[in-house]
Amino acid sequence: MTTTPVATGTAERQQPTELRTGKPARARRTRGAARAPWMLLAPFLALFVLTFILPIIVAIGSSFTSVRRSGLFGEEGVTSEFAWFDNYALALADGNFIASIGRMLLFGVVQVPIMIVLATVLALMLESASARWPGFFRAAYFLPYGVPGVIATILWSFLYVPGLSPLFDVAALVGLEPDFLGAGSVLWSIANIVVWSYTGYNMLIIVAQLKSIPVELYEAARVDGASTWRVVRSIQLPLIRPALVLTTVFSIIGTLQLFAEAQVLMKVAPAIDSQYTPNLSAYTTAFAYNDYNVAAAQAVLIAVVAFALSFIFLKLTNRKSA
């Protein structure tokens, strides 16, 4: 934020040089400085346009287009026309798609706070003087982040299936008969996989912010005789707010993108249908029904909901701090 305008600074400070070497050198330098940022940005921007901007334009474009096939099997050619909001109307009229968004909202309201609170508590405990072997524990908690979501789900799915999983033997010891894959419980079995995968990652972001708190603050608190709880509440929690906001926003976006976990569990859990999550729904529309236009409308709707939720969350947290 404190960047000085380099190009003008160069010109000013080079006055003496210019007097000695004449104008061409100065002109060459300023031209170089003017072109340099674009040359440095060019590769990133080119790929950004190809993989972000163009797909977004294509998605919005095809979400407003409808394709009409003439003839019984479309053999008489395909015509596409501007369809206004027809695809959006179709997507929104699909009760299963709306239900999947509702399901993800319920999922997010429960899973995201649990994960963020768990990550915060673990980070605070690891950074407290009371913890032994913090390096080992930090590595253990972070390990699942290196396990891809699909593989984590394959792993947990083995643990959810009766007959294969030792969890059922353990549960039987205390007289429980869990059903991890039933209609009512499978959503929370997915939540468990997400918590398992990402708590350590969020914890690490919070730990990084905790480490940036100046030692003097802790010393001042100790001099004042503040209790551990008081230090947590009055120093640590307020100062790690940015990390908490960041991890929450990423988790909200991640929740709406949920796909791999549901798709992999589908094979063992009949309760999961092909429209269980919004993304699964869009994928099914595109590749099972070959209706790319409605799928594009669904993709746009998912992005808009994710964007709106992140925006609302950021607004709420900003207002609270002001």
Binding site: F52, P55, I56, S62, L256, Q257, A296, I302, A303
Partner: peptide, 24 residues
């Protein structure tokens, strides 16, 4: 403008661009 656009890209869900990217 460039920075703002790229920052918007951080918030775009990766899976939202995957389908149109496939068409492209």
């Amino acid at each position: 403008f460039v920075f703002g656009t790229i920052l918007g890209g951080v918030l775009v869900p990766g899976t939202a661009t995957a389908l149109p990217l496939f068409l492209l």
